[in-house]
Nucleic acid binder design. Sequence first.
DNA 1: CAGTCCTCTTGATGCAGATCAAGAAACCGT
DNA 2: ACGGTTTCTTGATCTGCATCAAGAGGACTG
Lengths: 236, 236
Amino acid sequence: MSHIMPESDYPDVRSLHLFSEMADLNFSALMRGSYVQNFPPQIDLIIEGDPSDFLHVILSGSVELSSGWNGRETVMATVRPVSTFILAATIKDAPYLMSAKTLEKSRIALIPSQHVRDIFATDHDFARAIVTELAQCYRSVIKSQKDLKLRTSLERLANYLLRQHKGLDGTGEFELTLEKRKLASSLGMTPENLSRAFKGLLPYGVEVDGNRIRITDKDDLTKFAKPSPLIDDYSI
Amino acid sequence: MSHIMPESDYPDVRSLHLFSEMADLNFSALMRGSYVQNFPPQIDLIIEGDPSDFLHVILSGSVELSSGWNGRETVMATVRPVSTFILAATIKDAPYLMSAKTLEKSRIALIPSQHVRDIFATDHDFARAIVTELAQCYRSVIKSQKDLKLRTSLERLANYLLRQHKGLDGTGEFELTLEKRKLASSLGMTPENLSRAFKGLLPYGVEVDGNRIRITDKDDLTKFAKPSPLIDDYSI
DNA sequence: CAGTCCTCTTGATGCAGATCAAGAAACCGT
DNA sequence: ACGGTTTCTTGATCTGCATCAAGAGGACTG
């Protein structure tokens, strides 16, 4: 089940911007009260509405954040290592707004929210790091909302592919990191429509073979997708 | 045009949670470097993509935050006194992600972003207040995104009316605080559709006469709208 | 008070994407 | 290799909402 976090995991957590500046003493204290656990795929980590007992740090694997209402459900985001999630709920000591479940085998650190709040109140470097992290999270959601409200599903897919393609080798070929049904939901569309959307991008040089994507004419795709730094650049 | 902020405006700003806890000295310093201006309606305060030179505090009136892409445009939020906007951009020293313009005659305080960042770095109470404010903003956007992705426009309108109705006198009658075309956009729909949506809520006891709304059967409307604290309660 | 702007409303039509249904392909555990 | 499950694809249909078009009511103006 859960284990006190072994010291071998400290460096991974410490390397996060959120924890890199805080006092050694506080970091150790935080870690000593924390747990690490390996989860199989498809395990519910959090149900929306629950009190926020732990700040979660994903060390490996991937986690999906989703929300539901009145029988409907939607994927809000997918989280990959190494990063935290549900920081805002922890800080505000408020209920989670999203559910979280593992997509694959994942290693997750659990830091008691009360400890985070305690140390937040006394370690000013930690407090400042939290501010930066929260501002980043906030801006990410705004970007995602702009993506959703201003673009068609075809445009969203095109921009998603360009973002994935960025910074990879120049071959123009890569693998989807998400199951297509998950991808569809995180892009705000149905699996059926994603399938058709891939077809719709064929004229712009997108070839699909299972999880393998080939972009044969990046300029053409870019001309269609019209990426904007104010929506697609996650670093600003 | 712009004026150094008169001391008579200090209390309004100070009353914000964001500024209430910081050291007197720092607050005064911040205010002395700030400006206050009265704007007429429909004035652009901010264009998305611009560098974030000022943290804005709305003292009276109302401001609309919007974003555009590829010739399309959407309203992201409406800001009312007394509150700040574009705090995240100020903190990160990153470009604005949204444009802002006045909807009505508005009084706005402009605090140079560099000052905010300077004092943020030294005043720990201020830093902690910023964390709380950012966490609040973040959660608001998440709620708004859930509203948008999980509900139809009819359901969004129904819940909007219930939220407006909350905490008012029990007469079940109130005025819309927004022009209908603005309301439509902020609910993610067109003016035409808003008109039809009001008709669609007639069976649930919603009567409309110009800007005047009467909810004749709140229980019935609630049964249809199915409000959830995890979407509609702005206080958590 | 007519004239002109607006906003708001109403109807007709069009389109993006959801839903339904069924087949094809990939992924199991035995 | 097998049957069983699940994902992916494809087509047909449905629906919510946008768009287009035009008229009704207010509000300001000369």
